[in-house]
């Protein structure tokens, strides 16, 4: 599904990612962890072709589409969805307006208003989101928790095949984390998407049974493993012993 080969990413002439390789199979959950500032969020933005991040070497493919050659719109329409740790506020454009435009453009046909509204209502019920969110400006004047829930509305409406979660659990209180975690699990159970979860914590991971883990350091992946690697890191931190394996990793 997603394949990243020998990726090198620059921003403002500074190399942030180098020799980065990662594969995520259909339905697979890949967790990406690492100390602050090693480039985890850069990977998320590079996949979506954020204008500040330049891919100077390497290749990203998604279901045989070379993402290096595509713009952000096309990448999104292939079914890739980025859920940011701090989603942008867009004053004056409602969720409904954006989603209606996105769906009608993607499907190249005018969205049936009845079907669209019905689905919006169903999604709001499914993720326990007040229905007035549909007509609120995108993330505008929302708390951190509300913004994440608002993003879930977009997720369920756009039905992506690959979800990129960039520190979705940062800044969430216990209740908001529960809503976000259970909603993501519902989505996973319904659609079996691939997921790339960037996180510092294990809180969001407890909602998923199986996942692979990769640790980033110095612009690239330095260690991979299964969920037990997360437990190790939570105990000992990202110290050299975990990364180079000098402390036994079970």
């Amino acid at each position: 599904m997603l394949k990243i080969e020998n990726l090198k990413v620059k921003t403002k002439d500074k190399v942030i990612i180098d020799n980065f390789n990662l594969e995520i199979a259909p339905g697979e959950i890949q967790v990406l962890m690492g100390p602050n500032g090693v480039g985890k969020s850069t990977i998320c933005k590079a996949i979506m072709h954020h204008p500040d991040y330049n891919i100077v070497d390497g290749k990203i493919t998604f279901n045989d589409h070379n993402l290096n050659l595509l713009d952000t719109t096309s990448i999104s329409r292939l079914g890739i969805f980025l859920l940011n740790q701090n989603p942008v506020e867009v004053e004056g454009i409602t969720n409904a307006e954006m989603l209606r435009t996105a769906l009608s453009e993607r499907n190249d046909t005018k969205v049936d208003v009845f079907t669209f509204n019905k689905k919006l209502n169903e999604v709001c019920d499914l993720i326990n989101l007040p229905k007035d969110f549909v007509h609120r400006d995108i993330n505008f004047n929302m708390s951190g928790g509300e913004k994440k829930k608002n993003e879930l509305l977009h997720l369920f409406m756009l039905e992506p095949k690959l979800i990129i979660l960039d520190e979705i659990d940062s800044g969430l209180d216990v209740d908001a984390l529960k809503v976000v975690g259970t909603s993501l699990k519902k989505y996973y159970d319904m659609y079996h998407p691939s997921m790339l979860i960037v996180t510092h914590h294990s809180d969001i991971l407890k909602y998923f049974d199986q996942y692979k883990v990769a640790i980033m350091d110095n612009k690239t992946i330095v260690k991979t493993g299964d969920k037990s690697l997360v437990e190790k890191i939570l105990k000992t931190g990202f110290g050299a012993s975990v990364i180079d394996g000098s402390e036994e990793y079970e």
Binding site: V88, M98, T101
Partner: peptide, 18 residues
């Protein structure tokens, strides 16, 4: 613009809405 296009809007549609 990045946010709207990463949700699938074309650049002209995103600019029109903005």
């Amino acid at each position: 613009l990045f946010y709207l296009t990463s949700n699938g809007l074309s650049i002209p549609s995103a600019k029109k809405l903005l």
